[in-house]
Design a binder for these strands. Structure first.
Length: 324
DNA sequence: CGAGTTTGACCTGCGC
DNA sequence: GCGCAGGTCAAACTCG
């Protein structure tokens, strides 16, 4: 069984670390007692003031600590929720693989009729993370599909991906991280939109082919049909990311049937915002500590790339330094 | 100049 | 055998 699917995922991380409370700490807020100590003056009254100020400060720090703990637990809760949703997605994939294996004996025409319009992916520039909806469209069939050459090779897998594009986008390009070379275009009988034929050009010996055609029912939907398996790793992570930054690339999760491990490429990139990208992880390792550590590292690096976050952090740190 | 795209011609399989 | 349709080839063309 082989499949390749694209996920429309919409989930925003809202990290409110209450950094404003740090930023608002101006030097004038420094307790009087502390200022007096800086001046080298000591008396009983000042010691009393200092004690009460320190107590107040301690209370304030406690409150701040409590708020931060709450925020942290909220973030952790979001992370757990997302992780469980990711688990749902991967289990859905295996379920669909099983279902599609049973359906694979159907004739091609019957399969074409079975295509569901609603199971499409939105590519509108912003990547939304919604693992609960059914925007994952997987159509996969074994070698009995369409082509006789495929029939001769039982290991050749066919999978179909539906991708929604901008109405203004007339190109037949589905960005999936691989490098494709177009070798033909044909107008088919049942669809006025031409079908484009692509070969994987990353490796000369790579047998994978891709057909891309607009849906006859909904021209804004591109139907990409993949045949075969790549005999090389996903060529360029950077390319995928670059494409994502342009807002034209879907979140892609692809799997290869012959291989016991599945390659999961999750790119939750959103333009001008924090990014979370997990590339090249095996979906069976999602629960592993290494994967989770990698996820946290990715989140951390995403936050550090966010100028807003770094400036807020810098303001908080400089505020602290000014105070002490 | 090389790599990628376009496009008409050609090949092959299938149904009648 | 013939016609049709899908798939592929390759020369011409485009673009960086």
């Amino acid at each position: 069984m082989g499949s390749s699917w694209i996920v429309d995922a919409s989930q925003t991380f809202d990290l409110d670390l209450n950094l404003d409370s740090f930023r608002l700490q101006a030097p004038k807020d420094v307790p009087r007692g502390v200022q007096i100590n800086f001046m080298g003056v000591e008396n009983k009254a000042s010691v009393k003031d200092e004690t009460s100020d320190l107590k107040a400060e301690l209370e304030r720090m406690k409150e701040e600590n409590r708020r931060l703990t709450e925020t942290l637990s909220a973030v952790y809760e979001n992370y757990i929720t997302l992780q469980s949703r990711l688990g749902d997605v991967t289990s859905m994939t295996s379920e669909k693989d099983t279902m599609l294996a049973m359906l694979s004996s159907r004739k091609r025409k019957a399969e074409n009729n079975r295509e569901v319009k609603s199971d499409v992916v939105d590519i509108d520039g912003s990547i939304n993370c919604n693992f609960n909806n059914n925007n994952i469209n997987v159509e996969s069939s074994s070698s009995e599909d369409s082509c006789k050459k495929i029939k001769e090779d039982p290991k050749t897998m066919v999978s179909r991906v539906h991708v929604r594009t901008e109405p203004s986008d007339t190109s037949l390009v589905v960005k999936d991280g691989y490098q494709w070379r177009k070798y033909g275009q044909k107008v088919t009988r049942d669809n006025p939109c031409p079908r484009a034929y692509f070969r994987c050009s990353y490796a000369p010996a790579c047998p994978v082919k891709k057909k891309v055609q607009r849906s006859a029912e909904d021209p804004s939907v591109l139907v990409a049909t993949y045949e075969g398996e790549h005999n090389h790793p996903n060529c360029t992570k950077s390319e995928t990311r670059a494409a994502s930054n342009k807002g034209a690339s879907p979140v892609l999760i692809s799997s290869s049937s012959a291989s016991p491990t599945k390659t999961v490429t999750l790119d939750l990139t959103r333009p001008n915002s924090s990014q979370v990208a997990v590339v090249g992880a095996h979906h069976r390792e999602i629960d592993s500590p290494e994967f989770q550590r990698h996820l946290v590292e990715q989140m951390a690096s995403s936050l550090t790339r966010d100028p807003g976050f770094t400036s807020a952090l810098a303001a908080a740190i400089s505020g602290r330094i000014m105070r002490y």
